[in-house]
C-alpha cells in the first residue's frame, strides 16, 4: 500500500494496521508516516491499564471500551504481551476477551509483543498511539502486564494510568508497591467477587496514606468485577474526574510537555546511536580501535571524544 499516512487520515482501517506494522518492524517508511501524521495528533485521551498477569486487564478494557462507545466515543486499544525470551515468539491472547469489539467500526484493537528490547517498545507504543490518535480515536487504551520499569516507561505514554490488582496477592503487593504507588492515578481491585478485596483495599489505602505528603490527587481505590460488568461506569467516571483534575491544574500540559521532550531526546539518542552503529561499528572501525586501546596505545576516553567531535563536524 502506498500513501499509508494519507489513507490513515482518510479513515482507512487497513492503512492504520499497515502503519502500526511499519512502526513495529522499524520499516524504512515508518519515519515518513509519522512525519505526515504528527500534525494530526494530540486530540486523543490516552489511558494506561497495567497490573499482574491474569488480573482481568483485557476484560476490563473490553467493558470500559463498551462504556465509552455508549457515550459515542471512538476507541483505540493497544495490548502488549511478553515475547518469549527463548524463541522471540509470543502468544498474543488479549483479543480473546475483546471479541465483541472486533466488528465495531468505532473500535480498533491491536496486539503487540514486547520483542526483547523494552526501550524500543516504549517508543513504538507511543508511535502506535499517535497513529490511532491521528486516525481520530477519542480514547486510546494501552494494556501492559506487570509493573516493572519497562511498564512504567510504556505507561508514560498515558495521560491517566489505572493499576489493576486482585485479592489474594498477599505479599506480592509489598514487592511491587514502589512501582504501583508511583504510576497509579487510579487503582482498581478487580475480581472483587473473590475473598479479600476489602483487606487489599485497606492495605492499599494504608500504603497510599503512609506516603505522607498531602497530594492534590489522592488515587482513588475502586472495586470492579469486570466479567460481570460491575463497577465499570464508575471507573469511566473516575477517569473523567482525573482528566478534569489534571486539565484544571495544568498537570496535563506539564505531563504532555515532559513527554514531548522525552520523545525528542529518545529520538536524538536513537539517531545518534544509529549513526555510530553505521560509521563506527558496522564498518569495523570499532574493532581496530579496540586493538589499539588494548595495546594501550590510546584510551577509550580519547577515542570516544574524537568520534563525537568528528560526528559533530
Amino acid at each position: 500500500m502506498e500513501n499509508i499516512a494519507e489513507e490513515v487520515l482518510m479513515g482507512n482501517r487497513y492503512a492504520l494496521a499497515k502503519a502500526i506494522t511499519a512502526i513495529e518492524n522499524e520499516r524504512e517508511n515508518a519515519m515518513e508516516i509519522m512525519q505526515k501524521l504528527y500534525p494530526h495528533t494530540g486530540h486523543a485521551y490516552v489511558l494506561g491499564i497495567t497490573g499482574p498477569p491474569g488480573a482481568g486487564k483485557s476484560t476490563l478494557t473490553d467493558k470500559l471500551a463498551k462504556e465509552y462507545r455508549r457515550q459515542g466515543k471512538t476507541v483505540g486499544i493497544i495490548a502488549i504481551d511478553p515475547s518469549s525470551p527463548f524463541s522471540g515468539g509470543a502468544i498474543l491472547g488479549d483479543r480473546i476477551r475483546m471479541n465483541d469489539l472486533t466488528l465495531d467500526d468505532g473500535v480498533f484493537m491491536r496486539s503487540m509483543g514486547t520483542r526483547g528490547s523494552l526501550g524500543g517498545l516504549s517508543h513504538k507504543t507511543a508511535d502506535a498511539v499517535k497513529v490511532m490518535d491521528a486516525f481520530g480515536m477519542d480514547v486510546i487504551f494501552v494494556e501492559t502486564v506487570g509493573v516493572g520499569q519497562s511498564e512504567v516507561d510504556i505507561v508514560k505514554a498515558a495521560d491517566t494510568t489505572m493499576v489493576v490488582l486482585i485479592p489474594g496477592m498477599g505479599d506480592d503487593i509489598q514487592a511491587i508497591k514502589a512501582g504501583i504507588l508511583e504510576i497509579g492515578d487510579i487503582f482498581t481491585i478487580n475480581k472483587a467477587d473473590h475473598d479479600g478485596a476489602d483487606k487489599l483495599a485497606t492495605e492499599l489505602n494504608m500504603m497510599l496514606d503512609l506516603d505522607g505528603v498531602m497530594k492534590e490527587w489522592r488515587p482513588p481505590i475502586m472495586k470492579t468485577i469486570a466479567n460481570q460488568n460491575i463497577g465499570i461506569a464508575e471507573v469511566v467516571e473516575t477517569f473523567g474526574k482525573h482528566h478534569n483534575h489534571i486539565d484544571g491544574n495544568g498537570q496535563l500540559t506539564v505531563r504532555r510537555t515532559e513527554r514531548t521532550k522525552n520523545e525528542m531526546l529518545d529520538l536524538l539518542d536513537s539517531r545518534i546511536g544509529e549513526h555510530i552503529r553505521r560509521n563506527v561499528v558496522e564498518n569495523g572501525k570499532i574493532d581496530k580501535l579496540v586493538e589499539e586501546i588494548k595495546a594501550r596505545r590510546t584510551d577509550p576516553y580519547t577515542e570516544a571524544a574524537k568520534i563525537v567531535s568528528e560526528m559533530l563536524k
Partner: peptide, 16 residues
C-alpha cells in the same frame, strides 16, 4: 499449534 508457532519465533494472535 499456537504454542508450536510461538516456539518457532512467530507472533501468534489467538482469538478464542
Amino acid at each position: 499449534v499456537a504454542r508450536a508457532l510461538r516456539d518457532a519465533g512467530f507472533e501468534v494472535v489467538y482469538t478464542g
